[in-house]
């Protein structure tokens, strides 16, 4: 089992001085993910919080090779880098034993929404890449517009709550399931508060030959509107309520990695977040009920898939 002390002694691939918000969840994810391989690494990053906050020229927080081209194409961009690697190996211009890992990275906007097609194409083609989605449930880099990852009832700037609206009216898209449907070798959901689980999943993703996809819950105090010191507690609540189940699908086989001792109500998840505040108005009670129903349905289905 990995020890944090050992991980801390590894070189930082994402260094201090970046401009991410107080209490931001993104660096927590990449502190672990970028340590899950010791091989040289090349990252293609979609436009978004991580890209903007780490590369304001002439400064960069990247102590590893990093490429950005656009918003919707991190998967295609890293597929291109990986294709060139394969070509040059075949042509003998890169030594046969030179190992490089390829990582595509995007937020939920760049992955669930505008980047879904490029991601689907890249994994279907079988490139040997890892793609990590840091899902903070909205377009948080630009002030919190709704994405298809925004949960039902959350107030986002393009699905605001108001006299005639209880916030986002649609169920969140289950992207992890969509990736499972691509029949790729490895798909997993993780959360930074369970760092051992996240570390193992990232290691597995890098080790497996072929495409691997990690969907990681990403805390965003700025847009979720909670006390930023409580982020890790909130992530624990997300997995205890089964709003964000931790599971993996390896070669089609489901495994749930965290079973809450006692499944907590969705209410526990929404009550500390300002984006759900309006759900406590009487007329919006049905939304909370519906949200609970959806989470229950998804959890039951997942348990069935995992033969539990």
């Amino acid at each position: 089992m990995a020890k944090l002390k050992d991980l801390a002694s590894m070189e930082d691939r994402l260094v201090a001085g970046h401009g991410m918000c107080l209490g931001c969840g993104i660096p927590l994810i990449f502190r672990i993910v970028l340590r899950a391989t010791e091989d040289p690494l090349i990252i293609a990053n979609a436009t978004g919080c991580l890209e903007v906050c780490t590369t304001i020229f002439p400064r960069t927080s990247w102590n590893v090779t990093w490429v950005h081209s656009a918003f919707e194409n991190a998967a295609a961009t890293i597929a291109g880098v990986e294709s060139m690697y394969k070509a040059l190996k075949k042509k003998g211009r890169i030594p046969e034993d030179k190992k490089i890992k390829f990582l595509g990275v995007g937020g939920d906007g760049g992955t669930y929404d505008i980047g879904l097609q490029a991601l689907s194409g890249a994994v279907e083609r079988g490139h040997d890449i890892v793609y990590v989605c840091y899902d903070n449930n909205a377009y948080c880099n630009t002030g919190g517009q709704r994405s298809s990852a925004t949960p039902l009832g959350a107030s986002a700037t393009t699905s605001p709550e108001g006299a005639q609206s209880p916030g986002k009216l649609q169920r969140r898209k289950d992207l992890t399931k969509i990736l499972v449907a691509h029949n790729i070798p490895y798909v997993a959901q993780a959360s930074p508060n369970r760092w051992q689980d996240l570390y193992k999943k990232a290691q597995k993703a890098f080790e497996i030959e072929g495409p691997a996809f990690l969907n990681i819950l990403c805390l965003c105090p700025t847009e979720w509107k909670y006390d930023e010191s409580q982020g890790i507690r909130l992530a624990q609540t997300a997995i205890d309520t089964c709003v964000w189940p931790l599971y993996e699908v390896e070669n089609g086989k489901y495994k749930i990695n965290y079973l809450p001792k006692e499944k907590k109500p969705v209410l526990d998840w929404v009550k500390s977040q300002g984006r759900f505040r309006h759900l406590f108005k009487e007329e919006n009670a049905w939304v909370l009920e519906e949200y609970q129903k959806q989470v229950d349905e998804d959890w039951e289905e997942l348990k069935k898939l995992a033969n539990l």
């Binding site: 090349i42 293609a44 490429v67 081209s69 656009a70 919707e72 194409n73 998967a75 295609a76 961009t77 890293i78 597929a79 291109g80 880098v81 990986e82 294709s83 060139m84 690697y85 394969k86 070509a87 040059l88 075949k90 042509k91 211009r93 097609q117 490029a118 689907s120 194409g121 890249a122 279907e124 083609r125």
Partner: peptide
């Protein structure tokens, strides 16, 4: 001998070209 990639759209085709070209090689 080169790699032939058949992406799911022209947008991705050019994105693959950009990734590949920045990787270092003829595209």
């Amino acid at each position: 001998a080169g790699e032939f990639v058949c992406p799911e759209s022209e947008h991705s085709a050019m994105s693959v070209c950009i990734g590949a070209s920045s990787a270092g090689g003829r595209v």
